[in-house]
Write a protein that binds this DNA or RNA. Sequence first.
DNA 1: ACGCCAAGTGGTACTGGGTCCCACTTGAGG
DNA 2: CCTCAAGTGGGACCCAGTACCACTTGGCGT
Lengths: 199, 199
Amino acid sequence: MNDTAKRPTLRQRTRQAMRDEVSAIATRLFAEQGCDNTTVEQIAAEAGLSRTTFFRYFGAKEDVVLTWLEDLGPALVAAFRARPGDEHPWTSLRRTFDLFTAMNADAPERSLSFMRMLQESPTMTARYAEKQQTWEDLLVPLVAERLAGDLPADRDPAPRALVASALACYNAAMQAWGAGEGTGSRDDLLDRAMNVLRD
Amino acid sequence: MNDTAKRPTLRQRTRQAMRDEVSAIATRLFAEQGCDNTTVEQIAAEAGLSRTTFFRYFGAKEDVVLTWLEDLGPALVAAFRARPGDEHPWTSLRRTFDLFTAMNADAPERSLSFMRMLQESPTMTARYAEKQQTWEDLLVPLVAERLAGDLPADRDPAPRALVASALACYNAAMQAWGAGEGTGSRDDLLDRAMNVLRD
DNA sequence: ACGCCAAGTGGTACTGGGTCCCACTTGAGG
DNA sequence: CCTCAAGTGGGACCCAGTACCACTTGGCGT
């Protein structure tokens, strides 16, 4: 029982494999016929499990293509922490987002189809925003201690304003990138988005 | 038939009255027992109409307390248009948001309970974000023509980055205001949030 | 005043996401 | 071999949202 921490046990590995496979199938279905036109029943049937079990793996239909976002939270925190403490938070946030732009840099079609999915499915957009909210909540305290504000932490809008704006810039950059069908560098677009706030 | 434009006809006025009354009842129920614990059936029963009719008035359960947001879109556009064309968009956006801070300035409890509702109901937050998205889409083209970018409009992330960040700042300010139980000036908080981006 | 049309209303049934519970299997360990 | 925990599937259930239908009602022209 205490060795489970050392290495992923069999059960955990099969569970992860299951998640990955279901996720792949769902991604394909969503791309083919749209997220909102795909039922959980269909995904479950295609993946060879029951509706019940599907919901044991994923809390909601949309999560099936968004789980990887959650795992990103700690990585974001680490990336931000790795930045020098006297750097301007805005710059640190920009550099933290290198995580995003680097990710899938070799397979832009994946990111593109993801953007398309977001564009055409409001419920997916909503879920996505929810995930980003968790990132925001993770980063806000880190920025807050950088600012060392005179106000009590949660009554100072500044840290949250910085983090939320940075994420908004990221989303704007990605949307512009998607509108251009993936032409142009995501880094350049993000730079432009985040620089226009400080010209 | 062509005089309907002149003055609201009887039907329209009763319709508006109905909306207002149902909205008031729903607001009370949401505050009392939480939004997610309140069913449409309950609202309908309490308001004396059928579930069917409820959905004819409001597209979704949450809309019952968010309809006033939609009507705000054109007002936002007008407020932004009223700003001088050579003003920095960020400043114009700040001034545009005076619409928000002025609204309910006399009845802060209303805004406070609204913030509480947002805090405890993720689905409400999602809907709210959706409404704000429509504001964003309205304002982005206005900012775009101010910037007169070198890129084709929808491939330049800058206008959307500005608008979305401004809204993010507004949300951060409101959240901080809610955390302080309404102490402090919303204008000051919003100023602080939007200035930290440009220190 | 009469009838007509449009708009509004309520009822019913249906889809689909999400939760809960129960019975069954299966795999790991004593 | 037995046991217990974890995982699985099935079914019932709740609720939001949609579609369709029959019915009423209010406004309007003749």
